[in-house]
């Protein structure tokens, strides 16, 4: 089973980290990532920009914008949902079961304090092949 581990936290607090604090957390996460990569359990990993850089596409309630006469989807600025925590990134891990996914998530939680992770089984998985740097 493939699982997506979704990382949530208060992005204003995380955004207040100094460069050194940020680098320290990223190093600890990288250490976990390295081991998982060696065990061939790690898919793509992403860290997302802050939600101020997000744009949301919201489809009309009645229809899905697929047929003639359907309303066009609404494009909105900002993240999909306003909550206390924001999605900071996700991990894709290959685990035998939920127990193993939980164990890995706990380990990541120790490396990266505060916030929460959401664990969700994946229905469709695309490994992706982009290797270029952003911008």
């Amino acid at each position: 089973m493939l699982y997506a581990l979704l990382c949530y936290n208060d992005e204003q607090a995380v955004g207040s980290w100094s460069k050194e604090e940020d680098a320290a957390v990223m190093d600890k996460l990288a250490a976990v990532n390295d081991r998982l990569a060696r065990e061939k359990k790690l898919g793509p990993v992403a860290r997302l920009m802050q939600t101020t850089a997000a744009t949301t596409l919201r489809k009309s309630g009645k229809n899905r914008g697929l047929e003639a006469g359907d309303e066009a989807p609404l494009v909105l600025d900002g993240p999909f949902a306003e909550t206390k925590e924001q999605l900071l990134g996700f991990f894709v891990v290959d685990c035998a079961n939920l127990e193993e996914a939980l164990a890995i998530t706990r380990e990541l939680g120790v490396a990266n304090p505060g916030g929460a992770y959401e664990i969700r089984p994946i229905a469709l998985y695309l490994p992706g092949s982009l290797t270029k740097e952003p911008a």
């Binding site: 208060d10 204003q12 607090a13 207040s16 980290w17 604090e21 957390v25 304090p113």
Partner: peptide
């Protein structure tokens, strides 16, 4: 990061 450092950041952002 210590608990205190974390609290400090939370207070700052709130």
């Amino acid at each position: 990061m210590t608990d205190m450092a974390w609290i400090d950041l939370a207070l700052r952002s709130a």
